[in-house]
Amino acid sequence: MAKQYTAVQVYEMVDRYYQMKTSLGLAVVSPYSVDQKNTMVQDYDNLGMPRAQGVGDPTARQALNPVHEMVLPERMVKDYEVKVAFIDEWEHVITKQRDRAVLHWRLSGLKPINIAELEGITDRHVRRILNDVAKKMSEMSAMSEMSKVS
């Protein structure tokens, strides 16, 4: 039987999804990366300017570089795998276009303030949407479990 999660727990899992996936070494489509060389400007060569070697900003370099070899305790690996699988399994129940877009951006690692700028809404509205998404995912998984028991 699959584990049941409250809406608060699902919200926290959505919030930490990107970190959990990268900690497990799984590929995540990052909204920060532009090209294979991890540079911020994709078409820089066509501007006629000399190309820098990589990213000079340490914060951007840390955000763009793949996670270095991390050693997680086995129980943490299993916990992360279960939580990532739960989100992957239940994200399809979100049907509203804006809700799906906000969820996509959050799962990709963007912070609510940045999502708000992209979507043209307030960060408070983004958090409200994420709360609704978490509630729906929690309810749908609970209803699914009840139908399996009956």
Rank of each mutant, 00 (worst) to 15 (best):
V8Q: 08
T22L: 09
L107T: 02
F86T: 02
R75L: 14
D15G: 07
H68Y: 12
D88R: 10
L64S: 07
D88E: 15
T6W: 01
E145S: 08
V41K: 00
D35I: 00
M140W: 10
Q53S: 07
G120C: 07
N131W: 08
Q36E: 15
Y44M: 03
L107C: 06
R127S: 11
M70I: 08
V84F: 09
S147M: 06
A60Q: 03
P112M: 07
N38R: 05
K21Q: 10
D88H: 12
H92S: 12
K83S: 14
R124E: 12
M143N: 08
R127G: 06
E117N: 09
Q97A: 13
M20L: 07
E74V: 15
E145T: 08
Q9F: 11
L47E: 05
M13G: 04
G54H: 05
K37N: 09
S108C: 05
H125Y: 11
V93G: 09
M1K: 10
V41E: 00
L110G: 02
D35R: 03
D99Q: 05
A85W: 10
R124K: 14
G56R: 12
Y80K: 07
Q62V: 09
T39F: 01
L24N: 01
K96P: 00
M76V: 09
Y32C: 05
A2H: 06
T122K: 04
K148L: 05
N131F: 05
K111R: 03
A63E: 13
F86Q: 06
D57L: 10
V10S: 02
S138F: 08
A7C: 08
M76G: 12
E145V: 05
